[in-house]
Nucleic acid binder design. Sequence first.
RNA 1: GGCGACGUAGCCAAGUGGUAAGGCAGAGGUCUGCAAAACCUCCAUCCCCAGUUCGAUUCUGGGCGUCGCCUCCA
Length: 477
Amino acid sequence: MALRLHNTLTGAKEEFEPLEHGHVRMYTCGPTVWNYAHVGNLRAFLFYDLVRRHLRVSGYRVTHVMNLTDIDDRILDQAMHAGKTIADYVKPYAEAFFEDMAALRAERAEHYPPATEHIPEMVDMISTLIEHENAYVADGDVYFRIDSFPKYGQLSHLDRAGLKAGARVATDKYEKESVSDFALWKKAQPGDEKLGAAWDAPFGRGRPGWHIECSAMSKRYLGDTLDIHAGGVDLMFPHHENEIAQSEAANHKTFARVWLHSEHLADATGEKMSKSAGGFTTLRDLTAAGHDPLAVRFFLIANAHYRSRLRLSAEALHAAAEQVRRLREFADRLARTTPASADDGDLAERTAEVRAGYREALDDDLNLPQGVGLVFDHVREANAALDAGRVGPLNKASMQAMIDDLDAHLDVIRAEEPGLADEVERLIAEREAARRERDFGRADRIRDDLRGRGIALEDSKDGVRWRRISPTEAGRS
RNA sequence: GGCGACGUAGCCAAGUGGUAAGGCAGAGGUCUGCAAAACCUCCAUCCCCAGUUCGAUUCUGGGCGUCGCCUCCA
C-alpha cells in the first residue's frame, strides 16, 4: 500500500509522490523562541518528526527545514522589558528548544534557519513582490496586496467576504488598501535600534513581518516548490494562506503540494493550550513532576491521531508511561529469551500479519495509534507464547523486527542502558545469597533500598532482572 | 455572525454498512518465599430523534453538547 496523506488543500487523503523521485522536500513551521515551548507546541514538532521518520521508513531521502522565529512582536516586547537585544533575549529559549527536542528524541532536521539570519532573502522577495505590484509601500511599511492574488483563501477555504473585518485595522497604524492586506515589512520604530531589530532595505529601514520568513527561507533551502509543508491547524489562517500568496506571487510556481496540519493539544479544561487560556505546560514542568520525557513523547504521537484533538491529563500521561514500560518489558524479555528448538507457525503468521498491518496503518495518513494497537495485541499473544516456551529462533527474530518497525517511529523502547553498575550487581548477588539462606527480611531490605534509588528488581526463573524506574514509580511500594 | 471539527466503556482512544482494536484504571484467578513481571477471565451496543437500508455506531436530515478558526498562536 502506498503512503496516503491528508492534504488540507484538497481536504482528502491523497497518494503521496514527491516531485523529485526518492527525495522529499519538507518545510515545517518551528518555534517562536520567545519563551519555552509548551507541550502543545511540542505536539506539532513531534508530528513533524513522525512525518519525517515515516518518509524515511518509506525509503525517501528527506530534506527537512524547520525555521526558528527569532523576531516578532512578542520578542520585541520581552526583550525591551528585559533590557536586552533580541539576539540575547532569544538565545536561552532557542537552546531550550533544542534540549527539549533532544529529550523527546526528535530527529534533527537538516536545517534550522533563524529568521534574523535571512533578512536579505526576505528583502529580495519583498522587492520582487513590489515590482510585480503584489505589494505596496505605505509610509515605510510594506503590505501584501491581497486583491492581486485571486486564489487567496484556497487553503483555509475561508471566503474573504465572510472574514470579520475590523479587528486588524486597529493594530496597523497606517492606511492599507484593504483591511486584510498583511505586513511584509514594518518600519523601524525608535526603540528597535537598541534591540538590534532593524535592518536596511530599499523600501526603508525596518524589520520583516512574520509570514515572509517562511516564504523566503523555504525558497532558499528547498526551492520554489515544496513537497510537504506542515504546521499546527492554527497556522492555516492567516499564516499559511499568506505564505502561499507571497511565494506564488513572487515565484509563479506552486508553493507547497501537500499541506499537513496537526490538531491542538487541549489542557485539562478541554481548551486549546495557550498562554492566554491559562493552561501552559512545558516539558520542564512535566519532567519536574516526575514524568519520563519518552512517556510524554509516546503520549503526544501515539495516544491519538495527529488530526484529532488530544487532551493533556495526568491519567493519560500515566497510561502512556505504562504502555512504554510494557513495550520495553517485552523487548527486553524477547532479547534475553533462549529460543525454543522449533518455531511456532501460527505465531509466525500472526507476527507477519501484525507487521503488515502496522505498516498499512502508518501508510494510511500516519495512523500510529491504530498501528500501536495492533502491536499491543500481538505483544500479549507473544508473551503467552514466551510463557509457554513456544518461541523459536525465527519467531524471535521476526518479533524483534516488529519492535524495530515500531521503534522506527516511536523511538521510546531502546533505552541507552548504562550497563550494570558494579554496586547494583554486588547488591543483587548479596540478595541472592540471602534468599538462598531464606533470610527474606534482608533480601527485601536490599530490594527496597534499590527501589528507593530508582532500581526495581524482578525475580523470574531466568534470574534476577533490574530496570530503572521513574521517581513516581519508586514512590509506590 | 461566517466557516469547520468532534461527541465510542470510569479515563484515553482506533475503527467498520452486518452486532465495536488497543492502553490505563478496576474485579477475580494462575505463577511466586513475598512481590514484580507475564498470562487467563470479567467490564460498551458507539449523545438524542427521524430517515435510507434486509441490516447503521458507521450514510442522510434535525436536535443537543463540546471545541477550533475567522486577531498573535503549534
